[in-house]
Design a protein around this nucleic acid. Sequence first.
DNA 1: TAATTATTGTCTCAATTTGAGACAATAATA
DNA 2: TATTATTGTCTCAAATTGAGACAATAATTA
Lengths: 239, 239
Amino acid sequence: MAKKKADPADPKGSGYLANIAYDSVVFGFSGEKLKILLIKYHNTGLLALPGGFVGRNENLNDAVKRGLKERTGLDNIYLEQFYTFGDTARFKPEIMRTILKANGHIVNNDHWLLDRFISVSYYALINYTDVVPKPDALSDSCTWYDIDKLPALILDHTTIVAKALETLRANIDKKLVGMNLLPVKFTMKQLQNVYEAILGEKMRRTTFQRTMLGTGLLKRHEKHYSGKAHKAPYMYSFR
Amino acid sequence: MAKKKADPADPKGSGYLANIAYDSVVFGFSGEKLKILLIKYHNTGLLALPGGFVGRNENLNDAVKRGLKERTGLDNIYLEQFYTFGDTARFKPEIMRTILKANGHIVNNDHWLLDRFISVSYYALINYTDVVPKPDALSDSCTWYDIDKLPALILDHTTIVAKALETLRANIDKKLVGMNLLPVKFTMKQLQNVYEAILGEKMRRTTFQRTMLGTGLLKRHEKHYSGKAHKAPYMYSFR
DNA sequence: TAATTATTGTCTCAATTTGAGACAATAATA
DNA sequence: TATTATTGTCTCAAATTGAGACAATAATTA
């Protein structure tokens, strides 16, 4: 079949579903701080959550996994859908136009990318240490930012991050949060640091240790000699 | 401006966003049973959740409220978005075609209604007693069904109901569930019946009463004389 | 080599919450 | 007037949580 030039006003030609986008809040943990991935668009300084579109023959969840794999190189990422944002107030075609223009794309007003989008949002938990973030075609960087020192983001992305964190907090006891943010083996103190970073509050050491061991989900391994002048802690992993 | 015949292959002409639908799981409580609203499509016997589409200039949440108002006559319904279903497996254009045909609409293969849809799903809690369900143009009935005696539903609607119930259970302590399913004034037993219907398990009466009163959310009113041969219970309302 | 320091793992005891039932009060009926 | 079914409250035991004590220990320092 001869390749025809697609009509940029018709989303079908793009291969993507119309009016639907996804955004992902990628959490990582490092240096006792909770962080998320943000991308910066070429020549604009605009910061945003990594996101994308859904192929016409692709599962929604798979589209998000695909996007994350491109950004992090990781397969089998822990993913949780938490909310779909659909207010008309998030429709600001000038922003997308600015981004496209800064990348050398001049588009008509009826281009499908300038139409209104509803964003299905996910959060991901990944092991910070085995990721080298990669930007995509439109962005010149993909970098970690401290969750409590976030810069201004485009559209409603600040709201999206807030809701992601709220959901993560609500889920911290139900889902195995620590398992996904830490290396396979970790100390009890590291695990507690993760909990404290997510909840934004200090926890009592002895109670934390008791309840964690009480779940029966942890497996104890050899001790870890850090070289510091104190008793060496055990390493643990999730069963 | 002269009215032009809209191209049915172009969703923009319809006034709705493409590829996006919503479905709502409307919970009501009656006779110690939890129930949901289902619609039946004309001449097909097909049962489905009440749903609809999002206007191009309409907030997603407002679209759902609008749909519910049409079905129940109620404003200010308690609504909670819980998941967005986006698998390709839910794309079955023959079903929509069957429904349209049974209503006398013959449509082309490229009609926007036959395209793939992602469903943003909500659950609603309403006071059963002040609702008279109304069907819409495509459906011939809108009726209550027992949550544990559900008939087969189209597409993935059974999965959607299951996830709605799961979320409702998870939220039962965080959100004021009883408030929205009961009349303004109710007895402690009625409230317990709601909890038991949602959780699907019996609860201990004295413990339930203690914890409910302990929240400080209930206001006690006059007694209610049912005519039965036993002590009359107090009525309560949420503050 | 022996004190010192900074943790870590475990234990204890009090405080709080939850489970399970006892019991008196009471609205209609027999 | 006794009976029945249910309600509101109270009690006591069991389980969980809060708060801290204390010994163990890996390096450092005296």
